[in-house]
Structure formats: C-alpha cells, structure tokens
Computed example of a mutant assay.
Amino acid sequence: MNTKERISAQFDLIPAATAPDLMAEPTAEAIPSITGGVVAFAIDPQIADTSALLDATGLGPETSANCVLVAGSRAGEERIAACMVLANTRADVNKRVKKLLDVRKASFLPMDRAVGESGMEYGGIGPIGLPANYRILIDSRVAEAKELIIGSGIRGSKLMLSGAALASLPTAEVVEGLANEIE
C-alpha cells in the first residue's frame, strides 16, 4: 500500500485548493503557485509532530518531510532559508546550509520569529507560503519522492504532494546533500 492509500484509509483527502480552512492563510494563498496535485487532510493536532503522525499512520520516515528554518548573517544582511529534509535525515546546518547561505554561522530561527514571520503555527510550518525573502532549499531525496506529507501551516492538518510538486515552488532550489542520515 502506498502513502496515499494508507493516508486515505485513515483520513479524508481533499484537494488543497478547495480546503483553505485546512491551512494557514499564507499557505492557502500560495497553493495555486504549485504545479501538480496537492491534497489536504485534517488530523488531531496531538499527532502534528512527525514522529507522532508516523506512529499513528504506520508510515515510515521517508514519507514525511520536515521544514527547518535557518538564519545567518553576512555584512549585516540576514539570510534565511527553509530547508526541506526527509524525516529520517537532518539538515546539515553547520556545513552545507551555512555554505549555501554564504554566512559564517547558521542557526535555527527562534520559534517566536518563525511563527510570527511565517504566519504559521509551530509544529505545522511548511514551505508553501513562506515570506518571499526566504530561500527554499529542498534536499534532492525530498524532490525525488513520489508522495510526501508536509506541514500545512497549522497543527490540525497536513498536506500531501510529490517532491516534484514541492520543487515547483517559484523559489525552490533542489540541493544534493542538504541533509545527512540520522544515525
């Protein structure tokens, strides 16, 4: 059984374009910018965290992508990136992301800033609808996935789409080796 079949057996899948109430406002507004199908499904907010969702659905970590917001500065200019990595990997913040942002030090964006600037809930932040000045870096393994579960901007739902659809975001950059396997 593939990811979509497993999810549809447990949740009602709705075309995302017709379900703005299942997404943060910036996410819903950006859905038309994606090439490819995107479906939304409501979940219990208690299972919004990746590990809880995977436990509840019986899916493996390769079916879910996490969005990690990272920031750094160079010459007084702040540079922010949303890094999309599979749940069984970690963004290589100290080497790869730092180099891509061309900063001396990169660190996770503080939660209050991430929530405030994205217009999304902590634990539901996804790449769709992020501020235009955020780079969207997508690990190549994410871009190659046939079906992925990502944040919808709220804890009460998730989105499902292909990695290719995610990579179709206007500012998306597919990066080889953005993340390392979790040991």
Rank of each mutant, 00 (worst) to 15 (best):
L148H: 04
G124I: 08
T35S: 09
R74P: 10
S140F: 01
R141T: 07
L13W: 04
A56R: 12
V93N: 03
G119K: 13
V39W: 09
K105T: 15
S64M: 06
G36R: 07
E147Y: 02
A164R: 07
D55T: 14
I80C: 05
K105D: 15
A28D: 03
G76K: 12
A82E: 03
A132E: 12
G60D: 12
G177L: 00
I128C: 07
M111T: 13
R141S: 06
M120A: 14
V142L: 04
R6L: 03
I149D: 01
I138T: 03
P15D: 08
S73F: 09
A28N: 05
A82C: 11
I138F: 06
T57S: 03
L54H: 04
P131Y: 05
I47R: 11
E117K: 13
L109M: 15
R74S: 14
P45K: 09
K158L: 10
G163P: 06
T18N: 11
G163L: 01
V39S: 12
R104H: 15
L101Y: 14
G126L: 10
T27W: 00
M160D: 04
K4A: 06
P32H: 02
F108N: 12
M120N: 13
E77W: 03
P26T: 03
S152W: 07
P45Q: 10
S73I: 05
E183G: 12
V174S: 04
P110K: 13
C83N: 06
M1R: 08
A52C: 03
E121M: 14
A24H: 09
A9M: 00
I150R: 07
P131L: 11
A114M: 15
P170W: 01
A40Y: 12
G156H: 09
R141I: 02
L53R: 02
N88F: 08
K158G: 02
A56I: 08
G60W: 05
S168M: 05
V85T: 14
L148T: 01
V142I: 03
S157P: 11
A165C: 01
N66P: 11
M1S: 08
D44C: 12
V142C: 02
A75T: 08
I7A: 00
I150H: 06
S8A: 06
I34D: 04
T63Q: 07
M120E: 14
D55F: 12
E25H: 04
A75W: 10
I136E: 10
R113L: 15
A114C: 15
T35I: 08
L169Q: 00
R79T: 02
N66K: 13
T63M: 05
D92R: 11
E117D: 15
V97C: 14
E62C: 07
M1L: 06
T3P: 00
T50R: 06
S168D: 03
V103E: 15
A71M: 11
L86Y: 04
L101D: 15
K98V: 14
D55W: 11
L161W: 04
G72L: 13
A30D: 08
T3H: 02
P61I: 05
G58K: 02
I136W: 11
G58W: 06
R104C: 15
A87D: 10
V174T: 06
G72E: 14
I80E: 06
V38G: 13
A42C: 09
L13Y: 01
L69I: 07
L100C: 12
G156N: 11
V70K: 07
P45N: 05
A165D: 02
C67D: 00
R96W: 08
G129A: 11
E78W: 02
P15S: 00
G60P: 07
G151T: 02
P32G: 00
